[in-house]
């Protein structure tokens, strides 16, 4: 019997796609594998060991950078998510209004402007403030991260809000709920998966940032990614792989959770 004609088939596409997936994961998998290498090479396998995880764990610079990364990411994502929720409430499901274009441009600016340009502009601006006030704490980094996290938090929240049934709020209002009660009892519970998704995305984005942090940080304010960038000049050991693997695991868990959260309907 002849093979049925498959209308979807295009010669060579499937092998290319498979190759694409392999190439996408191969480097990451190798990186993870060699983090367990007993030897100090990242190409010669000398047996399984957790020694590089232990050495990373005991490295005080890594410890400090990890704590700093988590502090910044937590504060920045909390700020960005709060701001994004309020902004989404103000800009979704409303009639066109004056100033709309400018506000959207502002919210999306961190997505449009190349990161290096944002980094340079923050370097210049914060240098001015540092000279004026003498303050060199973490808040520069937190605010910088919060700003570029806002569009990432804003998008899933807005999408959730847009997909929400407007009549639910009308029904609540019809059933004697004041605007605040409606928000508390109907809008917020419905919006919650979107808020959580937005917060997680913001957290990942902040945790992974290199460029802006590299430019904005004061001396001794390395986060995990900038610490790793600094290690580049040295001889690379699987310790970097171990740190990478840990960071990778954190990101993947958050991203997969985000994926399933943003998929839940109602």
């Amino acid at each position: 019997m002849a093979k049925p004609f498959d209308i979807r088939k295009q010669t060579g596409f499937t092998p290319l796609a498979i190759l694409c997936f392999v190439l996408l994961y191969l480097p990451i998998i190798l990186l993870v594998v060699y983090s367990f290498n007993a030897g100090s090479s990242i190409a010669l396998w000398e047996g399984f060991s957790l020694r590089w995880y232990a050495s990373a764990w005991e490295n005080e610079a890594v410890q400090a950078a990890t704590i700093r990364s988590v502090v910044i990411a937590s504060a920045a994502s909390a700020l960005a998510t709060t701001a994004a929720v309020l902004a989404a409430l103000a800009t979704t499901r409303v009639k066109p209004w004056r100033g709309q274009g400018a506000v959207f441009a502002l919210i999306n600016q961190p997505l449009m402007v190349p990161e290096i340009v944002t980094a340079v502009s923050l370097l210049i601006f914060f240098a001015m403030i540092k000279v004026q006030t003498g303050y060199t704490g973490l808040w520069y980094l937190i605010l910088a991260h919060a700003a570029f996290c806002i569009p990432f938090a804003y998008m899933p929240i807005r999408a959730r809000l847009q997909g929400m049934d407007l009549t639910l709020e009308q029904a609540a209002s019809d059933l004697y709920a004041t605007p605040w009660q409606t928000f508390r009892r109907i809008t917020l519970p419905q919006l919650f998966p979107g808020i959580l998704a937005g917060a997680m995305l913001a957290f990942v984005i902040s945790l992974d940032d290199v460029v802006i942090t590299e430019f904005v940080k004061s001396a001794g304010q390395d986060t995990l990614p900038t610490y790793m960038l600094g290690q580049l000049r040295r001889n690379i050991t699987p310790e970097v792989n171990a740190i990478s693997t840990a960071l990778l695991a954190a990101s993947i868990i958050l991203v997969v959770a985000f994926f399933f959260l943003s998929r839940t309907r109602k």
Binding site: D165, T167, A171, A177, T178, P189, Q190, K266
Partner: peptide, 28 residues
């Protein structure tokens, strides 16, 4: 609307999806 002594049955029902049947009825 929340001060008017009238209630509506909406075309798509607009039942609150995060509440049970009884919670929906109790809401008002």
């Amino acid at each position: 609307p929340y001060k008017r002594p009238v209630n509506t049955v909406f075309q798509n029902y607009a039942l609150f999806p995060h509440m049970t049947v009884a919670q929906n009825i109790a809401f008002g």
